[in-house]
Nucleic acid binder design. Structure first.
Lengths: 221, 221
DNA sequence: TTTAAGTGAGTGAGGACTTACTTACCATGA
DNA sequence: TCATGGTAAGTAAGTCCTCACTCACTTAAA
């Protein structure tokens, strides 16, 4: 008699392949770590989330940390965006460039676990946090900064530190997500409307007046 | 023979008073929680940091959570700033208002533990996090938003959602701190210079052109 | 002498990780 | 077409350790 037969099976009642198991363990662990932090999550919980014995977790990942590392390694995929923006960049379409970056950065959904994971890893001081940050976050600053620099050289933007300006802009956007996703602050408007306002505000502050040469703070075109 | 006599003593070799002990426990716990999170910190560590037995910690705080709550309760002191800004507000000195708020928000030092604590409590989902956020953070948004609103009514600022604008500005500033204090990203310039740039950028985007009356956001959509 | 400050040595619960074992899968050759 | 064995997937039931919290007690001070 198979008293407790169909436990660690996939949806067809068959044994899962190593790859699948690994993937679903990573997925489950990611969402648990994101929800409760590394220290706040137990290996037993992870196993249970996948419907598998705790021991199996350790068959795939020798330690809990290894599992954590696997998550971070997996979660590195940014370049889709940068490709998408490319067109707008060559056309010098400021509005579009900023809007696209902001939308991407602000978009909820799929990886709202992402931000939490990033924060947790930074706060808990995991070694991989830097890699994580570098590969996933830093790209944006550098990319946007480069664009701002060329626009300054074009004479279209005022002369500011490009990296600082990039951080300022991304700061607005990321902070918005933070408020919403971490602190549960209700949104005032739709994502789109918010992005539009931010982009508008920021570009107005950055764009050079075409005719006037009043040196300091004025707004744009 | 007093084999291990002078253990839980204060600097004079005397027994500490209840109040002092409580305070130093709170202080030690705050910095440990900030560094490693609630789950990542043990009561033994806290005791050791104060140079006292673990048992004593529980004489003062019945549970670890109580201690945590005590920290959050203690850390609520914002109004100093708001008083200081008041003068600038009545004079409608935009630049000064924004600079003061940003400087306050960005200043490192004393409570750099603060931001970490706030983030940890939010991430780990402590009940008090909301209170913490509300009492310490929200104030800024509301205060700044109110100012922006009056300036819009004055006709000095463009017509934007005041709360959204306030969040955008504080977002820039807080994000800057975050990068620096949590992610260890090196600063590009001094705090003052950074604040100056941010304020300049933001006010430029917000201020209405004195002569033109071009109504809404140019180059939109 | 009372009372508060302080402690060493627990306790039980739970967490990361092991061990020794069972089952399903499937490739092979008889 | 099967027995059949090698192997990977899977598990129950630990081990050992750490952690939050307790207990029974000692010491200092007023």
């Amino acid at each position: 008699m198979k008293k407790q037969a169909a436990q660690g099976r996939d949806e067809n009642g068959r044994r899962a392949s190593a790859g699948d198991r690994q993937a679903s363990l990573i997925a489950a662990a990611a969402s648990l770590f994101a929800a409760k932090g590394f220290n706040g999550t137990t290996t037993k919980e992870i196993a249970k989330a996948v419907g598998v014995s705790e021991a199996l977790v350790f068959k795939y990942f020798p330690t809990k940390r290894t599992l954590y590392a696997a998550i971070l390694a997996e979660k590195v995929t940014v370049n889709e965006l940068l490709d998408a923006v490319e067109a707008a960049v060559t056309k010098r379409d400021d509005h579009r460039v900023f809007t696209m970056i902001a939308s991407y950065r602000i978009r909820p959904g799929v990886d709202s676990t992402f931000l939490r994971l990033l924060l947790f890893s930074a706060l808990e001081g995991h070694e991989l946090s830097e890699l994580f940050f570098g590969k996933h976050h830093k790209v944006f600053y550098d990319y946007l900064a480069a664009y701002i620099r060329t626009r300054i050289e074009d004479g279209a933007f005022r002369s500011v530190d490009p990296l600082l300006a990039a951080r300022a802009f991304i700061g607005m956007v990321v902070h918005h997500r933070l408020l919403h996703e971490i602190f549960g602050v209700p949104m005032l408007q739709s994502h789109e409307a918010t992005v539009a306002t931010y982009v508008d505000l920021f570009l107005a502050g950055l764009t050079k007046l075409p005719v006037s040469r009043k040196s300091s703070s004025r707004r744009s075109r």
